[in-house]
C-alpha cells in the first residue's frame, strides 16, 4: 500500500486515479484464480469424498465473490475516471467479469436451498466445477465480441516502467496473501466451530454421538 501511494510514479495521462490500478487488477486476478481454485478443490472433493475439500471450495468461492465485488467497484471508479463512464460495455474484461460474478451469485442460494448436508456438498461441488470451466470460455466469447479498450496489463507487462511493475507485483502478492490468509482463517474458524458443535452434542448426549466420525482436518 505504501509503495502504491508513495513510490510508484504518477501516470502521465491519468494522474493519481491511476493508483487504483494497484488494487483493482490484483483483486480481479485473485478473485478469478480463487474461482478456478474453488473448482479444483471441488474436483478433489468429488474424487476423494472428503468433505473438508468441499468446505475449502466453499470458502474459496465465497471469498472470491467478496473480492469480485471489490473489483467491480474499483473498476467502475477507474472507468469513470479514465473513460468518463461508470460502465463501459465495449471492454471485454469488465463485461465478462460481471457475467462470471452474476453466475457465482447463485452459488450460495443453490447451496443453502439444499437441506441434506452431504448432498449440499456434492451439488455445490458440481456447480463450482461447471462454473470454473465456464470462466475461461466466457472470457474468450466476450473478448471475441468486443473491441479492445481495456489496458491489457498482462500481455504487455513489459510496457510498464520498472517502478510501476514492481509496485504492481507487490500489490498482487499482497492481495493474494490477503486472500489466502482470510481463506485459512475462515477454514480454521469453521472447523473449530464444527468440532465445538460435536463436542457440545457429545456432552449433552454422550451415548448417541458417533465418535467414529473423523474430525475435519484443520490446516
Amino acid at each position: 500500500m505504501a509503495l502504491a501511494f508513495f513510490y510508484a510514479p504518477l501516470d502521465r495521462d491519468q494522474g493519481v486515479i491511476q493508483k487504483i490500478f494497484y488494487i483493482h487488477v490484483p483483486l480481479a486476478i485473485v478473485s478469478l484464480c480463487g474461482f478456478v481454485a474453488g473448482g479444483v478443490m471441488a474436483i478433489r472433493h468429488l474424487r476423494s469424498g472428503d468433505r473438508s475439500w468441499d468446505m475449502r471450495s466453499y470458502v474459496a468461492v465465497h471469498l472470491s465473490i467478496v473480492f469480485a465485488v471489490g473489483t467491480l467497484v474499483t473498476g467502475s471508479i477507474w472507468a469513470k475516471a479514465s473513460w468518463g463512464h461508470w460502465w463501459v460495455w465495449s471492454e471485454p474484461v469488465l463485461v465478462s467479469f460481471l457475467i462470471v460474478f452474476l453466475l457465482y451469485c447463485c452459488y450460495q442460494p443453490l447451496r443453502f436451498s439444499i437441506e441434506d448436508p452431504e448432498r449440499q456438498a456434492r451439488y455445490a461441488s458440481v456447480f463450482a466445477i461447471t462454473a470454473g470451466a465456464f470462466v475461461p470460455v466466457n472470457f474468450l466469447a466476450v473478448r471475441l465480441a468486443t473491441q479492445h479498450v481495456h489496458p491489457r496489463v498482462l500481455s504487455q507487462s513489459g510496457s510498464l516502467p520498472g517502478p510501476m511493475l514492481l509496485t504492481f507485483l507487490v500489490s498482487l502478492a499482497g492481495v493474494a496473501l490477503l486472500w489466502m490468509t482470510l481463506w485459512k482463517l475462515e477454514i480454521t474458524l469453521k472447523a473449530s466451530r464444527m468440532s465445538l458443535k460435536r463436542l457440545r452434542a457429545q456432552l449433552e448426549a454422550p451415548d448417541e454421538v458417533d465418535l467414529s466420525v473423523p474430525e475435519v482436518a484443520i490446516r
Binding site: I99, V100, L102, L103, C105, C106, P109, L110, S113, I114, E115, D116, R119, Y123, V126, F127, T130, A131, F134, V137, N138, L140, A141, V142
Partner: peptide, 23 residues
C-alpha cells in the same frame, strides 16, 4: 439436475442458466 433438489428451484434455474448461456 443441479436445481432439482433445491428448494428455490424456479429462481435458481434462470439465475444459473442465463449467465452460463451468455457465450
Amino acid at each position: 439436475g443441479l436445481a432439482a433438489e433445491a428448494r428455490a428451484r424456479e429462481v435458481i434455474v434462470p439465475l444459473m442458466l442465463l449467465p452460463l448461456l451468455v457465450p
